[in-house]
């Protein structure tokens, strides 16, 4: 395997560069995946049957907490990549760890939020609206959950093997994934919550 030392570690082999481009293309597909969910959300937004509407059930506090947590975690994963590029492995793992903790906090808040919906009678089955709401949030949440496992695996590998070109590559790709989830959340925040509450 040829290693090109003029490039950052995560770009240093041909396979690494392929992986990064491949992941960007995957993100293109993810954009369409969420676009389909948003499309459906907008179509069902007012189709509430006899169930509650968005304005009835949304609460600003947990939503704000989630938003700030996710924005911060997107910042810290950016710092992790930066630390990786200046060869500060220790700092990198710390930032990555913080990111994962923030991710877990996000999930906890989201579980609280879902629980709240359940108690006010907005379940998956209640109406077209509640169904698509929970499916959209749930798909994002599932992505975050997957990200938590993935990030943990990467942490374990760094502990075990140090920052090899492969692991640097995985970490960088993980950061792309995490930023992307943040972007999706911004759209959820703006066009599901804020639009629903205003």
């Amino acid at each position: 395997m040829k290693i090109d030392h003029s490039q950052p570690l995560e770009y240093s082999t041909e396979q690494n560069r392929l992986n990064i481009l491949g992941f960007w293309i995957f993100l293109g597909a993810e954009i369409m995946l969420f676009a389909t969910l948003f499309t459906s959300y907008f179509v069902y937004e007012d189709r509430i049957g006899s169930g509650p509407s968005g304005a009835d059930i949304f609460e600003i506090t947990p939503v704000l907490i989630e938003t700030i947590i996710l924005l911060t975690s997107s910042f810290t994963i950016g710092l992790a990549v930066h630390a990786m590029r200046i060869n500060r492995t220790k700092a990198m793992t710390v930032f990555l760890g913080i990111t994962l903790l923030l991710g877990a906090a996000f999930l906890a808040t989201e579980i609280y939020e879902f629980n709240h919906y359940y108690h006010v009678g907005a379940t998956l089955q209640t109406s077209g609206f509640t169904g698509i709401l929970l499916t959209t949030l749930g798909t994002h949440g599932a992505h975050v959950t997957l990200g938590l496992f993935w990030g943990t695996m990467i942490l374990m590998q760094i502990k075990k093997r140090g920052l090899t070109p492969q692991i640097a590559n995985k970490s960088f790709i993980f950061s792309l994934y995490w930023h992307f989830l943040d972007v999706v959340w911004i759209f959820i925040f703006s066009f599901i919550y804020l639009k629903g509450m205003m």
Binding site: W24, I25, L27, G28, A29, I31, M32, A35, T36, F38, T39, F42
Partner: peptide, 14 residues
């Protein structure tokens, strides 16, 4: 290009 494609198709879909 990928992002451009994704966003334009997404907007058209929505």
């Amino acid at each position: 290009t990928t992002t451009f494609y994704a966003i334009s198709i997404a907007l058209f879909t929505v």
